[in-house]
C-alpha cells in the first residue's frame, strides 16, 4: 500500500496561524479570520488583504452559501481520488462573503448548478482531522 492509496490529509507542518481553523473544525465550528475592521478572510493568512490589518479573531460563520463555480472531476490525481470519480469540486461563496473550495456531496453531479444553495457538513475523517465539505442546503 502506497501513500497514494489514501486521500490527502492536511500536512502536519501547517503554519501555527492556520491551526485554530482546524481546531474549530474539530469542534464542528466553521470559523474564519476577521480583522479589526470587520473583514472576513479565507484562506488563513497573516494580513488582511483589504486593509492591511495584522490583528484578527476567529469568528463563526453560517456555513451557508451558494455555488460560485464548480467542476465535475473525471480524472482524479491519485488512485484514492480516482476510485471516487466522478466527484464535484465547488467554489462556495459564503453568505458572509468569502469563498471556500471543497467537495459538494449528497447530490449527483448532474444536479449541480452555479447559484445553488449549499451548507457546510463536518466530516470526522480520523482521530485527528475534521474536514469541511458542502451539501445542498436543506429546507428552512
Amino acid at each position: 500500500m502506497s501513500a497514494l492509496d489514501e486521500k490527502f490529509l492536511p500536512p502536519g507542518d501547517l503554519p501555527d496561524l492556520h491551526k485554530p481553523f482546524w481546531a474549530h473544525l474539530r469542534a464542528h465550528s466553521l470559523r474564519l479570520q476577521q480583522c479589526e475592521d470587520g473583514h472576513l478572510r479565507f484562506i488563513p493568512s497573516e494580513q488582511c488583504g483589504k486593509c492591511g490589518s495584522q490583528a484578527w479573531t476567529w469568528e463563526p460563520v453560517s456555513g451557508r452559501g451558494k455555488v460560485y463555480t464548480f467542476t465535475v472531476v473525471h480524472r482524479g490525481p491519485t488512485p484514492a481520488y480516482q476510485a471516487e470519480t466522478p466527484y464535484v469540486i465547488a467554489h462556495v461563496e459564503l453568505e458572509e462573503g468569502p469563498r471556500m473550495i471543497s467537495n459538494l456531496i449528497d447530490c449527483t453531479p448532474a444536479e449541480v448548478r452555479i447559484g445553488m444553495p449549499v451548507e457546510v457538513v463536518f466530516d470526522d475523517v480520523n482521530a485527528d482531522w475534521t474536514l469541511y465539505r458542502f451539501k445542498p442546503a436543506g429546507e428552512g
Binding site: 490529509l9 501547517l14 484562506i43 467542476t71 472531476v73 482524479g76 469540486i89 467554489h91 473550495i101 471543497s102
Partner: peptide
Amino acid sequence: PYEWLWGTTRVADHAV
C-alpha cells in the same frame, strides 16, 4: 491544502 484536499488537479483548477 485548501485546494488539493478535495482532489483538485491542474485541469480542475482551470475547469472552474
